[in-house]
Nucleic acid binder design. Structure first.
Lengths: 186, 186
DNA sequence: CACAATACGGAGACTGTCTCCGTTTTAGCA
DNA sequence: TGCTAAAACGGAGACAGTCTCCGTATTGTG
């Protein structure tokens, strides 16, 4: 079991994370890491020791997203709405979360099928959340046969990615409606 | 009317483009531009004079993609297949083309709704091609009411982007099937 | 309070982007 | 053909971001 962090280490770790959250939200996940270090009041070396890559940093920030996404999935199921509404609501929440920082959605797309990525585990947690929703509707017989949760997840992440990348700020609703129509039993 | 390029300019322009095509295919659209210049046997200044940004270079390479995409759309229509097959075929061709260089798909997603992008016009050409296919099926009454060609385009580009980004090389077919089911009249 | 373990931080190596400007090439004209 | 203005070249180098190395500072434990 890993021994606890030294006090100064913990302090810097937290400070970096808090700063990164602000900067990434302001300017997207492509912001300069040295810049984040400077604004956090630490040297670049310190940042890189705690977070060897940009991915590792994004990953750490995503920690609470996964929790919220999981909760949203269960909340969606609890509503007991019919398939269409439940899915639309769930997908919209999911997209809201993963586009919290510009650029995050496409990183998630990349990590989803890459076990070597530090984000892989978090993607799995979100994937599990999605699976719960899909399975719930599936056993209720509300979905077309052969719908695969992993593919649904990819598809919705793709929509998120398009919305995030798009210069115009796009309404995802119409795209999600197509996806939902493709999933629920006609 | 613009006077013709000088012989040396034309020569270098072509050489850069040919080299970029090779390098982008080998290593994706993030390859170093100076590297491309070097391999093309020209100075960086020359590359940047012809193509002020990376986008401009990618855009120039896309020239023949748009032609092929257009032709594919018309070919798909000409098959006279039922909606499902026609769309699946068309979407797969489309994705094949826009993922020819790794990273291109997401650039296209970004350019699609950004009139300031140098790629915008090419995206419109591809968008028109897609619209022809969709309209053709729509007047034949084979689609759900309210299907919007622009959104279909975004959705399919999103699938392309996911496939392109994904570490594993993904089969796009299952995702496209969902999309198609969401579009054609149940 | 001493000292070993741990962490810090910033100088600087390295890589990629992009520009400026002295030099070379070209095309048109005598 | 030879001359010249205009056009294009190319590479040195300014700049920005990534990431590392190692001398210095901080921590917590015996």
């Amino acid at each position: 079991m890993p021994r606890p962090m030294r006090a100064d280490a913990r302090r810097n770790y937290d400070k970096i994370l808090a700063t990164a959250r602000i900067v990434f939200t302001e300017r997207g996940t492509d912001s300069s890491l040295d810049e984040i270090a400077k604004r956090a009041g630490v040297g670049p070396g310190t940042l890189y020791r705690h977070f060897p890559t940009r991915e590792a940093l994004v990953d750490a920030l995503m920690q609470d997203w996964t929790d919220r996404v999981s909760a949203d999935a269960d909340a969606a199921i609890a509503t007991g709405q019919p398939a269409r509404e439940m899915l639309l609501g769930w997908f919209e929440h999911f997209i809201d979360h993963i586009t919290l920082h510009r650029g995050a959605a496409s990183k998630i797309c990349a990590a989803m099928d890459d076990p070597a990525s530090p984000m892989y585990r978090k993607c799995r947690v979100m994937g599990e959340a999605n699976r719960r929703v899909i399975d719930h509707l599936d056993v209720g017989g509300q979905l077309r046969p052969g719908v695969d949760a992993a593919n649904v997840m990819r598809l919705v992440s793709g929509v998120a990615s398009v919305a995030d990348t798009s210069h115009a700020d796009l309404d995802v609703r119409p795209m999600l409606e197509v996806v939902v129509d493709g999933i629920v039993r006609g």
